[in-house]
């Protein structure tokens, strides 16, 4: 009843086309990654934050961010030196604003799926704690980091 179908030229052509398109799509996907390697764009990480608009440093936001940071983060992070987690000086230069906020808001998935966060877990061994921070609080913490980094002298290579 179900005899094997005869050789299907159209079907074979479809397969070849799909393979070609897939290859091209893959190339396209690789382009941003290649660009990032050249230092042109930092990873945004994985999480709820897709883009952050940065303006001049907002001192009200800085004060709110400092308060939350001191309550929820200082048990593991210092600015100048490695503690339980990495030192935070110049973090706004190393990472994109989106990556920083996603790491604060979504540390568990980041550690599993984001290559940078995974490497950090491998180095520090203690997972970044999910401190149930709101998006608003995370944005304020980011502003606090920006204000700290703005005060640092320029690094000469």
């Amino acid at each position: 009843m179900n005899a094997p179908p005869p050789f299907n030229f159209a079907g074979r052509m479809l397969l070849v086309t799909v393979a070609t398109v897939s290859f091209l799509a893959l190339l396209l996907l690789l382009v941003p990654a290649l660009a990032q390697d050249e230092g042109e764009a930092l990873s945004k990480g994985i999480g709820p934050i897709e883009s952050v608009e940065l303006g001049p440093i907002d001192e009200t936001l800085v004060a709110a961010g400092k308060e939350t940071f001191e309550l929820l983060c200082t048990a593991c992070h210092k600015f100048e030196e490695r503690y339980v987690g990495p030192p935070l000086h110049r973090v706004t230069e190393r990472r994109s604003p989106e990556w920083i906020m996603n790491m604060i808001l979504n540390p568990t998935q980041m550690a599993m799926e984001d290559p940078i966060a995974f490497d950090l877990l491998a180095e520090y061994m203690t997972p970044m704690a999910d401190q149930s921070v709101t998006e608003e609080q995370a944005r304020a913490i980011l502003e606090y980091f920006r204000s700290i980094d703005a005060e640092l002298p320029d690094e000469t290579p």
């Binding site: 929820l72 048990a75 704690a129 999910d130 401190q131 149930s132 921070v133």
Partner: peptide, 8 residues
């Protein structure tokens, strides 16, 4: 306990 994550 300073954690703010569920089940820690």
């Amino acid at each position: 306990n300073l954690e703010q994550d569920w089940d820690i």
